[in-house]
Design a protein around this nucleic acid. Structure first.
Lengths: 261, 261
DNA sequence: CTTAACTCTGTACTGTGTACGAAGTAGAGG
DNA sequence: CCTCTACTTCGTACACAGTACAGAGTTAAG
C-alpha cells in the first residue's frame, strides 16, 4: 500500500510508554548485556524517517539499520506505535526556547518559526498523530514555553491555552501542506509546472471543466499561481496566516484591556 | 500495522484519474455487461470509510461489500489511491452553497461550519491527502464558492486566495484534532477522564514530571481542562480560532480600505 | 462465424507488525 | 562453585495489505 501518513497507537499499556518517554527504566539486573539502548533505536528510527518518511520507519528497517534482527527491537520498545511516540518527543527536544522579554507578538512569531523549521527538518512528525501522547518531557516543556509567551498580557488561562493552540495549529496545517507538496514532487517526479503541463490539456478537453463555469476560481487561481510561481505557496500561506492570527489575537487583547479599564 | 491516516497516491497516470473524476468515460463497446459502475465502487468505499475509517477502505473489503472478487475493482478504478481521490471529491459534493448576500464574515462562517460538519460526517476525509487531487468538479466548485464569499471587499486576488486558504486550513486543523480525539476514545476504549485516571498516578511517580517544573503548563492545562470538561476541546478551539482569524481578516480589510481612501 | 475488446477471477508475490517459543547469557542466592 | 532465574536475542510463522499476471468467459463489430 502506498501509504503516506498519520499513524497512531492502538490501546497499549500506557505505563510502559510513559516510563520510556521520561527515561525512568529500572536497568536490567540480570541477563546478557544489551547490545543497544532505547535511545539507539529511537535515533535510528529518526534517521530513517528523516530520509524517507514515516513509511520507511518499519521494524525490519530499523532493525537492519542497527544490525540486529527485527524481533530484537521489541526488547527496547513495546511496539511500533510507542516507537513513534518516542520519536515525536525526542524531536520536540530540538525546539529552542525563545529569548525572554520579547513581547508576545515577537515571542509567538519566534515559536512559530522554530516549529515550522522543525517540521521541515523532520517531515515525519506531521505524519504521526500526537493526541494523548504529548506526555513526554519535551512536549511538556514546549507547552510551558508557549504559555510563557502569552503570559501577563491580559488573557485568562483558558484564553492563553486557546491562543497557543491556535498558533500551533496554524503552523502544523501550513507545514503539512508544504510537506505534502514537497513529497508529491518527489514521488511523482514532476514539479508543479510539469504537472500542470500534463494535466492542463486533459482538463481543457472536458467541457464541464470550462473555466467559464468557475470564473472566480480560474481568475484568482491563476493570479495566485503566477504570484507564487507555483500552484500553491505554503510558506506564504504560513506568513500570511500568522499575520492574520496575530492581528486577531491583538484585537482580543485590546478588547480585554478595554473591558478592564 | 495499526495505521490511522493520511494516505496518498503514488505517481499514476493522471489522465485516467481526471477522466474518472469528471465522469467522462467512453462506455465499453464490447464485452460483457459490467456488474457495477465506478459510482458503485466509490459509494461502497465511502460507506466503509464512514463506518470504520480509512483503514477499512481496503480493496478486499470494498469488493466483499459489493459481492465481487477483489481484482474486479481494478476494472472500475486504477487502484486504491485513485479510489480515495474519487471518494474525496464525491464527499465534497455534499457541501452546500452559502446564501448569497450574507456579508463576508457570515459567509465565511457558514462555509467553515459546513466544512466542519462534513469532516465529522466523513472522518476519513482528513486521513487522505488532497494535494494536487483537488481537481475534481466538486472541489473546483467549492473553491469558487469560497472566493465568492470574499469578493468585492477590497482584497486583491492573491489576498482572496490566502484568506480562503487560511479559513479552510483552520477548519481542517481543528477538525483533525476533534476526530483524532474521538478515534482515540474509540480505539482505546477509554474516555479522556478514564485515561487521566490511569496516567495521572504514573506521571505523579516520576520526579522529573513534577508540576513545579512546569508551573504555567500545569496551571493553565488544569484550568482549560476543567473549563471544557476534557483534556482538550476541539470544538471550542474551532470557534475561538475562527473568531480570531476573522478579526485578523477584518484588520486586513480595514488597512486596505484606509490605504485607498 | 470470426475476431477483438472487455469483464471477471484465482493464484501468487512482496512487504507489514508481531505472537510464540527456543537458545543462550549473566547476575543472585546458596 | 553451582543452580536458578531474569534477561536478551532471534528464527519461524501468521494474518492482512495492494496488485501483477494470465486465463476463462462474454459480447458486439466486421
Amino acid at each position: 500500500m502506498s501509504r503516506v501518513s498519520t499513524e497512531d497507537n492502538g490501546g497499549s499499556d500506557p505505563r510502559r510508554a510513559i516510563e520510556l518517554l521520561w527515561g525512568v527504566a529500572a536497568p536490567a539486573r540480570r541477563g546478557p548485556k544489551p547490545k543497544l539502548t532505547t535511545a539507539d533505536v529511537v535515533s535510528a528510527a529518526i534517521t530513517l524517517g528523516d530520509a524517507d518518511g514515516i513509511d520507511a520507519v518499519t521494524i525490519r528497517g530499523v532493525a537492519e539499520h542497527l544490525g540486529v534482527s527485527p524481533m530484537t527491537l521489541y526488547t527496547y520498545v513495546p511496539g511500533r506505535a510507542e516507537l513513534l511516540d518516542l520519536m515525536i518527543d525526542h524531536a520536540h527536544g530540538e525546539l529552542s526556547v525563545p529569548e525572554p522579554g520579547l513581547g508576545w507578538r515577537a515571542a509567538l512569531t519566534a515559536l512559530a518559526d522554530d516549529e515550522w523549521a522543525l517540521y521541515h527538518r523532520h517531515p515525519w512528525l506531521l505524519q504521526a498523530t500526537t493526541t494523548r501522547s504529548a506526555l513526554g518531557p519535551n512536549s511538556f516543556a514546549r507547552y510551558e514555553h508557549e504559555l510563557r509567551a502569552v503570559e501577563g498580557i491580559g488573557l485568562d488561562d483558558v484564553e492563553m491555552d486557546a491562543v497557543v493552540t491556535l498558533v500551533s495549529g496554524l503552523v502544523r496545517g501550513t507545514a503539512r501542506s508544504s510537506l505534502d507538496a514537497a513529497r508529491l514532487v518527489r514521488t511523482s517526479g514532476m514539479t508543479d509546472a510539469q504537472w500542470w503541463e500534463r494535466v492542463g490539456p486533459v482538463l481543457a478537453g472536458i467541457p464541464a471543466a470550462d473555466p467559464a463555469h468557475y470564473p472566480l476560481a480560474s481568475r484568482v487561481g491563476t493570479a495566485a499561481g503566477q504570484a507564487h510561481n507555483a500552484a500553491s505557496d505554503p510558506a506564504h500561506n504560513f506568513r500570511f496566516g500568522l499575520a492574520r492570527v496575530l492581528d486577531g489575537i491583538e484585537t482580543l487583547i485590546s478588547a480585554r484591556s478595554e473591558g478592564r479599564e
